[in-house]
Each structure stands twice: as structure tokens, then as C-alpha cells.
Design a protein around this nucleic acid. Sequence first.
RNA 1: GCUCGAGUGGUGGAAUUGGUAGACACGUUGGACUUAAAAUCCAAUGAGCAGCAAUGUUCGUGCGGGUUCAAGUCCCGCCUCGAGUACCA
Length: 937
Amino acid sequence: MNYPFKKIEKKWQEYWLKNKTFKAEQFSERDKFYILDMFPYPSGAGLHVGHPLGYIASDIIARYKRNKGFNVLHPQGYDSFGLPTEQYAIQTGQHPAVTTEENIKRYRYQLDRMGFSFDWDREIRTSDPGYYKWTQWIFSLLFNSWYDTKSDRARSIKELSEFLEKNGTKKLYAYTNEDYDEISSKTWLSSDEKFKQEFILKFRLAYLSDSYVNWCPGLGTVLANDEVVNGLSERGGYPVEIKKMKQWKLRVSSYAQRLLNGLEEIDWPEPLKEMQKNWIGQSHGARVKFKIKGSKNLIEVFTTRPDTIYGVTFLTLAPEHKLVKDLTTKSNLGNVSQYISKIAKKNEKERLKDVGEISGVFTGTYAIHPFTNKKIPIWISEYVLVEYGTGAIMGVPCGDQRDHDFAKFFKIPITNIFKGVDVSTFAYTEKETFNLINSGFLNGLGFNKAFNKAVESLENINAGKNTITYKIRDAVFSRQRYWGEPIPIYYKNDLPYLIPKENYPVKLPEITKYLPTEDGHPPLGNSKTWAWDTLNKKIVDNKKIDFLNIFPIEKNTMPGWAGSSWYFNRYMDPNNDEFFVDKSALDYWKDVDIYIGGTEHSTGHLIYSRFYQYFLYDLGYVPSQNFAKKMINQGMILGESAIIYKSKKNKNFVSAGIADKNDSIPLHVDIKLVNEKNQLNINEFKNWQEQFKNVKFELENGKFFVDREIEKMSKSKFNVVNPDQICDDYGADTLRMYEMFLGPLEQSKPWNTAGITGVYNFLNKFWRLFHDDKKFCVYEKPSSIESLKILHKTIKKVNSDIDSFSLNTSVSAFMIAVNELSKQNCKNRDVLEPLVILLSPFAPHICEELWFLLGNQSSVSSCNYPIADEKYLINNIKNYPISFNGKMRFNLEISIDLNEDEIKKIVLNDKRTNKYLGNNKPKKIIVVINKIVNIVY
RNA sequence: GCUCGAGUGGUGGAAUUGGUAGACACGUUGGACUUAAAAUCCAAUGAGCAGCAAUGUUCGUGCGGGUUCAAGUCCCGCCUCGAGUACCA
């Protein structure tokens, strides 16, 4: 007999919803516990079995913490702005809001079926105007802030203007990665509005700038660095080009050092921290200024090896470097412009492909070495990146392999500066052991001393300084899309100004076409009345005349991560219309205790969120610098997909064993059409898609085989397993426990239903424990010591497992307990009742039902979690050390209630003792009171 | 190339962090119940050798060394797979 999971699950899901069982108290005397999942993007495909893995783990912990007496905040919501919905809108004309609503309904249905204990009263959606009102507000704060490098925090722009009025740029410690001219307070005060605004823009944390961005023509929008994978867009896989465009950016780079340092303070997985470290990419070095022969300009380069300054034999500029034009001599102009236009035509993918190929061109101009005054040729090459460092490098062929290759290729001399090293074929890149030669005042020094002395001397002649450079770039914040938050900016004389706060949310206009306008503006330009509706009356004096032309409004929208970078704060007070979160709520909930999600967001969402949180902390809006104290990365659940081969020659489908794989196109087929022996059901395949109706097959011994591959679950690979199916067949509790049983949470693993019957059998067995021939049956009399021991051992194990997130081993512990209790035919309340509570975080539906059958009125989620009673844990078997001639050899399991003679007998009979002693009879065996056994022979 | 992570039965995976490797589950085989099947229950199950048998014995945690009374676990050198990153000066 199987337990009636369908009936039970429906009953309790309705009960929880009706009674708001999992509502978090807004304020409480109890300790808070905030456990959060990364909220999903509600795509049209619905959830697959991979999505719930993290949700199940967090739900188990949430329920466990509730039973432990914490006031638990366990919310869920939707990251509902995004590209796929918009693409769908472009194709069908359906409003993205409608599609989003439908998708969310489906997600909610699927989530509810799995019995998650989310507090749905706190649901948030990033596309909800009541939410993005505050996303816009945070943008306004970023726009109105700059980074003070002296006090190391963000401050308001007002303070910056005041400073400039008073002091000009003298002793201004403000972060910027743009050039500016020093000015006095006098000049500042006499400057016009346009100059001031443009100047201040160089310091704003949200700023507009002409820069090289990843332009994706396929999607018609720009993308941030983390949204580009291998030169293709992360969404859709379209080619990406580098293009110079005026775009909104966030000055994330100003926080580089704090983002790096902060990693020490948070309990996040090491691999993830490592990835963030690499992404931030700190490197210590120096900026060195080179004078140019016949020019007043200076070239500034960044190097991590100022110690090799005497090995410089050329300088190289990035093709986009701003001095390229000035430095190119007339006779070289032809070559240079040809080279530059060739580089400019390349898209990101071609550029990646050419990495390693050497190319470059000579400008005809020479720089002057700061110490030797020798002439150094200035080159241009694409291996120097304009966005990193200063966009220029000093070429030291003896100490850097790329410089070495470049010098050799263009026959530039290679000067050796390392004693006793041959640099004719390879550069010498070791830092640890060398002595410098041919290096003037650095001769005889090693790396550290030479580094410091070189920097010092450069500083003395005002030709360089110590610098730390980071790889992390400012994040492009504009998207030429419809389905995102409007950026609350309007323009006056081409200068950006904030739309005043009172107008937030700046709502998306209603439009019918989601494509860009004909003159190339983003889709928001399709609305003629939007700007007026948005800015009404507050900016212009009641005059609608030619409004759009006088005060154009920003038509770009924000990227997907704008809404997701602060949502964890909003859950604390999700319906507040007065403020992004009430201060009292922030003071109580503070930060996320455990954040669960995948590593795929390590360089996107998780960096931006940390940046937002630091920023809000600097302005005093949030109490914690780090938004999540602890993070767990759940592994991906992979799907098994089937690959079929289509011959390039005759377009036939060829069985996998005989297919020429170099000469055929591999295609994904629905894994459901393939049996366990990798045989394809040809008839079903023909009916599967219209295009395959009349194709021909080349069989292998009369059969047709496909290859299998384990890969990420995705609709396009036809390998998606839907959790609804599992819920139908086995129930939600089985699905929950099985996903945990599959292996360690952090590990990626292929989905395989082979073992699911094991978990299902366990739950049935558990159910039978409370039943006698279909009738509920539990004894009131006390149970045996053996049963109590099993119970308490399990309680201890499960508690410590959940505390260490080892949820797979606790499932095993439950299986062992139930097996043993069934064997003992234990049906006593004193054992079964605690066991129900113990299991309830894992299998909540069945436990609620049994809890109810046991005669309890309230939900099992509101009672105390059992604590192991030490008295039952005293194991009668314990490991005791055995020593031979006083030296420890091994541990032996001995019953604690045995007397000395019995212990001696066991020791002598143990095979390891025998092995060790051989034929030597022991002279004496000493059993010390605390049961250390000494054998003397 | 660089930076992480991982390699344990037919399979997913345990192993108190240096202490009798293979818990738990799947699968397989055999048995009980049944007219039969399903379900359930019981037993066996790393490999080899010896034995009718209980049992004994050798080899076994990717490969090769090392430390230790004792290594899946620690150290050195490789191999393979996975993830991230990529002309970062």
C-alpha cells in the first residue's frame, strides 16, 4: 500500500496558504534568521528539476530554523525585467507585462506544488512600478554621488561642488578614471554651468561617457562585460562588436579595493571568492611617463615591472589611444591609418581568434628613456588594450614573452638586463631570483629592491609613481530596450539632469511597437506623450509646446541587474511606499544570513550587489556593508541529451556507431525518443517534427543508435525534466528528499531518476510505521531503550548535518532509522512523534499529516525541534586506543560496560593485534581505568 | 596559457578530518508470499585465489614516489576530467 501523497499534499498546501503559516513577523523578540534564494527570471519554459535544488535546501534550513525558534524571513520573488520576454513581445506584439504575468503564474504553481515555505506576502517583482520606483531612486543617489578616496567612501555631489568652490582641484581626493585639468577655485566660480556639469560628470558614480562598449547588433543593445561570453552574447549567442558609444555607466571601479578587501569578511565559498578576485584583478606596479622627442606630449604607461626599466626597447600604444594621431609622422600616416581601420572592423569574436598573432605598426616617433635618454621607438599594436591601465605599455622584450615575440617579429633590439640568463629565444619572466645588469643604478639588485628603487627614482624626477591597477571595468548601464527600468534623466543643453524624485516611478510608456524607432532610438522613443506625462509641469511651466525637443528624456533603460542588485533589502519591508525599506526593518533584519544560488552569477549579480550595498552603506541607508554573511553555491543539475548525426554529404541520418563525425552535423533530439540502449524510435522521430517526416536513415545492424551527452538542461537541447511529472508520479516530498539524496549540494550532477524509488520506498515505509493494516496505529506506552537510542542518534546526526549543510547524509540517517524501527516494530508515540518533527523540514506534507493524525492541532512547523538526549547517546561501543610497549598503534571498538578480562580477550582476538604480535606472546596487558589498553611484549 | 575544483564498486555517493574503505540508496542475483504479476519482506553483492562450509588469504580509493605503527585523507612529481578567465603589461 502506498501513502496517499496526492491527497495529503493538496490538503496541507491549502492549509499553509490559508493560515499564512510561514509569515515572518515584522518585529519580534526572537532572533531573526534571513535565508534567501536567488530569485528566478520567470521564463516561458517554466521550472525544470534543476531550479528547485537550491530552493529545497533553503526551505529545509528555513523550516529547521523556525522549529529552532527563530523568526525566519524566507521570501521569494521574480527578476521579471529581461530580454527574452521582450524578444517575445517583438515577435508577437504581446505586451511584456502580460507575458511576464503568465510566466509568473506558472512559476508560482510549480513552486507551490513543492511545498515551499515562502512568505508570499513579501513577494516582489523587479518590473513592478512600486519596486522600480526605488531602483530609480538608487540610481539618482549614484548620479548624485562621488567617491572620496581619502575617507574611502561615497559622498554627495553637493559636497564636491562646495569643495570645488572653496579649493578648486587642489588637494581633491576624488576617484575618477578620466582625465581632467587642474583648476583653481577662482576659475571654478567663474565657469559656466555647462563646464561645471561636464567637469562634475567625471566624478559621478553614475555617469555618461563616450566609451568602448560591447555592442550586440543581434539584440540591438549594448552589454556589460559579464554578459559577453566568448565574444557572443550570453542571451541568444549573437556576435558582439566593440563600438564607441555614449552610454551610462556605473563607476564600479571606484570600489575595486573595497570589493577585494571585503571578501575577507564574508563566509562565501572559496572558489567563488577566487573568481571575484580574478575578476577584480588587482596588480601592483607603476605608472611611468615618457617624454616624446619633438613633442610636448607625454606617454604614460603602466607596468608591473618598473625594475626592468633599463630593458625597455620600445613603447606600444593601443590603436584607440588618444595620442596616436599626434604622434604619427607624415611618412607613416598611410600605414598607421590602414592598420587602425583594419582593427576597427573586427568584431569581438574575430579579435579573440587572432589573439597570439603578432601585428603592429611604427608611428615614426621616438620617446626618451627617463634615465638613459636613449631614443625609444613608439609602436601601435592591438595587443595593448585601451581600457586597461593607461592604454600604453613599455616593451621589455627580455622580461615579457609577448614583448619578446613582438620585438623579434619587427626586428626591434632585445637588451638583456638579467645576469647569466640567455634571453635570445625566450623572455625571462621569473621574479624570484635574478641580479640586474646593464641597468645603471639598479645593477646587482633583485626584484623587490630594484622595484622600490626604480619607483623612488622615477618619483624624484617626476616621471612616475607607484600605482595599483584593477582589471574590473565600470559597468555599462544603458540598454537600448523596452522591458527595463527607465533611467530617470532628462537633458538640457545636452547635459543630463535628474528627473526629480517626486516623479518616481518614471513609468514605462504604453507603446505598441517594441522595436527601436526608425531613426535608431530605443523603443521608448515610440511614445510621443511619454516625456510630457512623466515630467508634467514640474520642470517646465505648464507648457507642452515642443517639449520633446527642448527637454529630451533619456530613452535607454537600465540593465537586468539594476533591480536585482538591492532586492534582498526590499524583502525586509516590501510594501513600503514611503521609503525603499524602513530603517526599523533594516535594523532588525540587517542582512542575509544564508544566500543560496549558483556560481554563474559570481562576476555579475554578486559583484554588482556588493557594490550597491557598499554604496548604500556609505550613504547611511543600510546597516551592513555586506548584504550576505554566508553563501552556498548549489551545483547544477545536468540533463542527459541525445545527439543524432546528419551526414553533410547525402543529408541522411546516420547511426552513431557508423557515422563519420567529422563529416556530419550533430543535432539534438528529444531524449524521450531514445531507449536505455541508446536506440532511437524512428517512427516517433519522424512524427516529432514536420521537417523530419521524409528523411532517410542509415542503420547499424538493423538498428539506429544515437550518442548521449550530459549537459546543462535547456529547452533547445530537449533534455529538460519537469518537476511536475515527478510530483505527479511520486509526490513532492519524494522529489524534495531525492534531490537532496542525489549528492552534496555544491556538486553538479546529472539528473537520473533511477534511484528515486529508494526515497519513495522510504516514505512509504515511514508511513507504514504509523499504520497497522491501513489503520492509523500508535502505542502510547513507552518504547524500548533500543528504539530510543536509534531516535536520539538520528536526532543528533540530523541536527549536525543541517548545521553543516550536509543534507544528503541526513536523508541516509532517516533511512537507517526507519529501517531499524520497522524491524523492531516500534510504533510508540515517544519515538514516532519526535521523528515526525525531525523529518518535517525534509518532507513537510507527510509529516504535517502524521502530526495531525497523532492528534496535534497546530502545524508541525510551530513546534520545537527535537534535541538529542545525551543519556541515549552514550554509546556502549567506543574507540579506545591500543598501545604496544607504550606506543600508540590503533583504536579498537570496545563495549564500555565490559570488565578488564573481557577487554583483554577482545584485544587478543583482534586480527590487527595478532598481525602485530605475530607469534610473540604478550608479557602483560594493562587496561588503564579510562580504557587505554597497553600491551607489553 | 593562468587560477580554482574533482578523480573511491556495475551506478549515485559515505568515511567521526590520519585509525578495520565502500555507510545509505539504485541495480543485479537468489529466496519467501501469490494461480500469476505488482507490491512487500529476507539474504547475497569491490576483485582474485583456496575451501562443501563457517572461514582464510592477497590485491584494491586516477598514476609514480615519500612521511607515518597506520594514508582515500598529509607532502612531492605526473595523468585525466570539470569550472572560471583570457593579449590585463
